[in-house]
Design a protein around this nucleic acid. Structure first.
Lengths: 336, 336
DNA sequence: CTGAAAGCGCTTACAG
DNA sequence: CTGAAAGCGCTTACAG
């Protein structure tokens, strides 16, 4: 049996109350007593029972993250970097991170419901926000705090981080154009994803500014996996008027695009340009190294976790909206 | 305030006990009553408070996984697939998965200690086992159940999955040899890692059987990241007698090796062969696609989670040792 | 088959 | 500055 607060109290012949207050650092305990308590507790290996504290305080000191069921094969490095960032921030503040993944929409719904109603977690961090997102609506209705990467259009006010890349997208396109490519295509994600909506918007506005025409069938929706990018690119390259510049909604899709282009015997960077978005680590080791709009994924996750903790502790947020701008990283895949 | 068991009981004018027993499916409640209880509870959105149940039952219904601090940048797809597998199995059984990552050894030690002593989790799943592994010793001493991918040599008995690939490594080497490569090198991981020890052993035994000599300086220890593989390969290729067949301890390191080889102007698959280990998804999209020994990572994680749940429920394990054999997947990186 | 009551290990208003 | 006691929301031996 692990040590309880009573064991510590008995050992020192003082009340449980005093031990509790001393360990929590309140100043209504004599300094001498406090030091003695802390020392003894450490020596005895006492750690408060989480369930008991949680039940009493009505707080779980745990944050939930459910990997969206959209991500079929969710081994995408993006999520790993995201989780890494959240985990770092939370464990530094003695909060835990509860993670789960689900394969179906129903299971996802069910899990949110369970975690909320069983008070397993104090708050949620969301990702891959959709234009209309039931998670946002559900959590808001449940009155449980949450933050997200991306703002849904449900008219619900919540703290979020968003990415603003209109200018950088223009830079990217000018760079690709300057290297001699002109027939652009956009390999996107599911059409109701905020990421997709934003990135396609930036793509379109950049084409307009560059005086580029993009036929409708050069804008494709995929599942944002490398396989999706591969298939979309294969299809594009088989058309009568294939593109020579493929901009992808994320790096994963771009990896698939690189693969498909090579398979068609095209030297990437010379005969065709490919670019991604996110700047995940492996983009550097692609062949050729992938041009991308680099966002600090782990850092964004860290900031989101930080915002949520502020919220949970009832502190005023400095800002309920944080804007991140990506950095254009030009590499071999667009001609260097 | 969320619905409690008392709310349900009051609504039906029956005792809390009956509600509790009915929901847990015991047969000391009349069928009619049980059905009524279940229906009402659902309608009211009742989910048992986890903290209360946990405190009473002295179980957390939560499994812990701490990403080893060895993994500097832990965005490795391997972990994502591993987490995915555990998560699937556990959430199907209504268990939760608590995940954390730490950057230093001290923080890791501290986290294990906290989770054990605060009863945050009922058991652990371990990964990246070392020859002598303090986690194995600590958990065993604490009396908390755990399972692992890999067996440490601490003389402690615990259920585990291990990989056996002596035969497959021989097949790999013969395949590479047949394609005209003969100057082998091995890019490994930290020397006390069980993975590294095993894989190097298989490498050595295969070289012996194939009658291949490998000079000492062709066996390199890295941190198993793509950067590590890149640097090791760059160094090897600059030597006076560069190798023409690089076998890597994992796919990540192999990605770096591919990159380095290309940078040296070597056509991989023709001038030099590269192979990995693990068979992560992206190995297919490497350039050229990577030859690898494919292990079903998510499936192994699922099995480990299943073993741990059996253990926690006091059931006898069918087997305390599960052996997995990888499948040799030959692709372009070794000449097809 | 059902109920009233104890207790899991904490935290915290209320007295002193 | 310290103590005795209540209560968070469950589960479960003990009666009936």
């Amino acid at each position: 049996m692990p040590t309880t607060i009573r064991d510590v109290a008995q050992k020192l012949n003082i009340s449980v109350y005093t031990v509790s207050r001393a360990l929590d650092g309140y100043d209504d305990v004599a300094d001498q007593t406090r030091e003695l308590v802390i020392e003894t507790a450490n020596k005895m290996g006492y750690v408060p029972n989480r369930a008991a504290r949680q039940l009493r305080r009505q707080k779980a000191e745990t944050i939930g993250f459910i990997i969206p069921s959209i991500s079929k094969r969710f081994n995408e490095p993006f999520f790993m970097e995201f989780i890494s960032g959240m985990g770092e921030e939370l464990s530094g503040k003695n909060y835990d991170l509860l993670i789960s993944n689900v394969n179906t929409h129903d299971a996802e719904l069910n899990l949110y419901h369970r975690w909320v109603n069983s008070r397993k977690v104090d708050g949620f961090i969301l990702n891959r926000i959709r234009k209309h997102d039931w998670r946002v609506n559900f959590l808001s209705k449940s009155g449980i705090p949450f933050v997200a990467l991306g703002k849904s259009q449900d008219g619900i006010d919540y703290p979020f981080v968003r990415i603003e890349a209109a200018d950088e997208y223009l830079l990217l396109m000018q760079h690709v154009q300057k290297n001699g490519f002109s027939q652009f295509a956009f390999i996107g994600g599911p059409t109701d994803l905020v990421n997709q909506i934003d990135r396609l918007k930036w793509f379109r506005s950049a084409t307009k500014k560059c005086g580029i025409e993009v036929p409708r069938d050069r804008i494709i929706s995929t599942d944002m996996t490398s396989m999706g990018g591969y298939e979309a690119t294969s299809a594009l390259l088989k058309s009568l008027t294939p593109p020579d510049a493929i901009l992808c909604v994320n790096d994963e899709a771009a990896f698939g695009a690189l693969h498909a282009a090579r398979e068609h015997g095209l030297t990437v960077g010379t005969k065709i340009a490919v670019a991604g978005f996110d700047g995940i680590q492996d983009s550097l080791h692609a062949e050729p190294p992938l041009t991308t709009l680099d966002i600090p994924v782990a850092d964004i996750a860290r900031q989101l976790a930080g915002m949520l903790l502020e919220l949970l502790n009832g502190r005023q947020l400095e800002s309920r909206e944080i804007v991140i701008r990506p950095a254009l990283v030009t590499r071999g895949s667009t001609g260097g």
